[in-house]
Design a protein around this nucleic acid. Sequence first.
DNA 1: AATGAATGAGTTTTCATTCAT
DNA 2: TATGAATGAAAACTCATTCAT
Lengths: 223, 223, 223, 223
Amino acid sequence: MHPTAHHESSSTASGAASTRRRRKDARPSELLAAGLELFVDRGFAATRLDDVARRAGVSKGTLYLYFPSKEALFKAVIEDGMVAALLAAEERMAAHQGPAAELLHDLLLGWWQQIGSTALAGVSKLIISEARNFPEIADYYRERVISRGRALLRQALERGIDSGEFRPLHVEAAIDVIIAPLLMLAISRFSLRLCGHEVSPEAYLETHFELLLRGLRPAGDHP
Amino acid sequence: MHPTAHHESSSTASGAASTRRRRKDARPSELLAAGLELFVDRGFAATRLDDVARRAGVSKGTLYLYFPSKEALFKAVIEDGMVAALLAAEERMAAHQGPAAELLHDLLLGWWQQIGSTALAGVSKLIISEARNFPEIADYYRERVISRGRALLRQALERGIDSGEFRPLHVEAAIDVIIAPLLMLAISRFSLRLCGHEVSPEAYLETHFELLLRGLRPAGDHP
Amino acid sequence: MHPTAHHESSSTASGAASTRRRRKDARPSELLAAGLELFVDRGFAATRLDDVARRAGVSKGTLYLYFPSKEALFKAVIEDGMVAALLAAEERMAAHQGPAAELLHDLLLGWWQQIGSTALAGVSKLIISEARNFPEIADYYRERVISRGRALLRQALERGIDSGEFRPLHVEAAIDVIIAPLLMLAISRFSLRLCGHEVSPEAYLETHFELLLRGLRPAGDHP
Amino acid sequence: MHPTAHHESSSTASGAASTRRRRKDARPSELLAAGLELFVDRGFAATRLDDVARRAGVSKGTLYLYFPSKEALFKAVIEDGMVAALLAAEERMAAHQGPAAELLHDLLLGWWQQIGSTALAGVSKLIISEARNFPEIADYYRERVISRGRALLRQALERGIDSGEFRPLHVEAAIDVIIAPLLMLAISRFSLRLCGHEVSPEAYLETHFELLLRGLRPAGDHP
DNA sequence: AATGAATGAGTTTTCATTCAT
DNA sequence: TATGAATGAAAACTCATTCAT
């Protein structure tokens, strides 16, 4: 597992170089993954770099070859998670043209499939736990990730209201109310199962959507 | 478990040491309050006992007069918060007889007034952040606080379903979906304002309730 | 148990005064006794004044009423023990006129009865353990207690040699060799039973004396 | 139990890190030596780890690289001393066939040369001083070291009694009486010179042996 | 590039000592 | 006198960071 062990068997120059190149590039992501897991599990202060290094299969010194400090690693972990989340969001965003209800449904399920059920969900817990200790990160996250997600929902809601599919309502507040169950679902995976002991994520999300849809529907409009 | 229980040898004249006694009685709760603020703000590991002591206006040594370790203080802070939350919940619980919708409305608003808007809300963030580091606390919290709150909501929902006021639904999942926005509201006060930048808590809760009520209503049932 | 409690009931001046006087005088010896036990058991540094006070049945503050510091208490404990040991030795010393062997036997047994088997024996362990930390105490002890005990033995040995009862020998070395088993006996009572697991002190001392006597006897002199 | 056992990953070139390796291998014994000196001098509680580290020429943190706690260092110091003492005893044990008196003489002198006069003697003082604070250590020492030493002496005494060289006597008590002067000699080197101010260890031991031999001899048996 | 031994500043914890009552 | 709450200096212990190899 120690990359040092490859040095002896590097007979052909080109092969060796590419292997090492790949390793070098790969190392940070292994470190980021290890960092994410541990930071999410224990929080920033309680995570020891020793453990991060061990989990990534390198020595503590190596970690400092790639990140100048614990805080730098932490920020990189978050940023990395945010970029991925953003990309995931972007994909889902891609021109959805059906009725607003369908769009909404896709957004919720898409979030679960591409974020909520993946390691990215851990970033949310991290941000919530450490926001006060790293205000710049919180700010950054709010502007880059949250506001983007909110924009998606806002679009869907407004489209529905415009088309008469949804009744008029306090859009911003509604966005929050829609997001909250998603976040809690994500969070609960990394701390105690606050919500939904025996409730499956899918059932939970379906109920959420169902309630939501009926809640959004104009009075008197029902199938 | 509360250190307030140290009242053994009150043999000396009651008037004489009254000032000191008053101090001594007040100390634990002063320390708990200081601890709550800092733990919520920074998390367990990042909170320095020095700071807790200073905020409570005592020396570090004094802290150890009342709590044998940092962890003990932390647990006492949580426990204290839970007891208070439980008492607050109990009060609200007291015989509500109106229609289910009204009961639900009261529960949401009552939660905000007696928990969400107070320091007790911080305990939620604490639990979420530290659940993995203190599994016993998480277990205890889930069984003592959460399950109690869920029972309240379950009662209201089932009453509404039985009376035909609400349509039949996945009750447990619905409970989660109802609680989530409350928790997020509480949490957002102590970390980044994930939800509701410019949205007031009251507007937020009102929107939540409105959406909810319509979502719960049987199909075709509308004023 | 709190002397403060006597204040109210001090109706007759004389009675109250004498009670209090007796208490005041008695307190130091209670403290000294508590100190001796704990210092012997744990050593100077590992003994907490809290424990000493508690064992003596007073508060920690009271201790400081009688001794200005932990070290002062420690020295007082030793001194107190030494004075008592000295007095005990003095008594035994008093004109013994029989044959040297008998004198020697009496010295050994007397030591056991008046020192070795009492709390005073603990002082020896204390001195041995803390001599390096309290050189003045060690010096004082050596000059005041040890040299006195050695003088007793020297007297007995020289008397025996002069009378031809004992053969000539290296008196000072012999004194050490005679004393050592006594000290070890004392010490073993307060630490692990280095010598004499199942051997009773009396049997041990008798064997010591027997070996000694035969060892001292001139060659060819035997019953 | 020895921390020297850390030799896992010696995959790197043997020559390259040789200096560091040599250091790392030497560290534990350097620390043990420093610990022994200070613990013997001051006792467990009064010894500062800072001082131990400084004496070993390393920082406090380094100490924790090899021993997880002060107590662990202490136990390792004792254990290390005991192992060495045991090895030394083993050597002396090697088949001695001459008369019992000669065997006895060799045991006493051998003890002095290989234990009493070395740093190992300090372990005895340590055990005596700290036995009450570390009962497991005391038990271990009694079973592993003391009982072994006693067995050696028992063998010599019984051989002498069987051969008629020595008179019958209370063997166990005699063992104690024989050991005591040795222990006191060892102890006196590390605390006050209780015995033998001006008496040289050799003269002291010679006197001890002489007295002993005459004391053991059957009545009427003399050259 | 990678290692891991070493460091020391920073934290938790202890306890002799003080002092208002 | 007696108390015991409060203190703070000192000690044990942790861990991010450095650097020789």
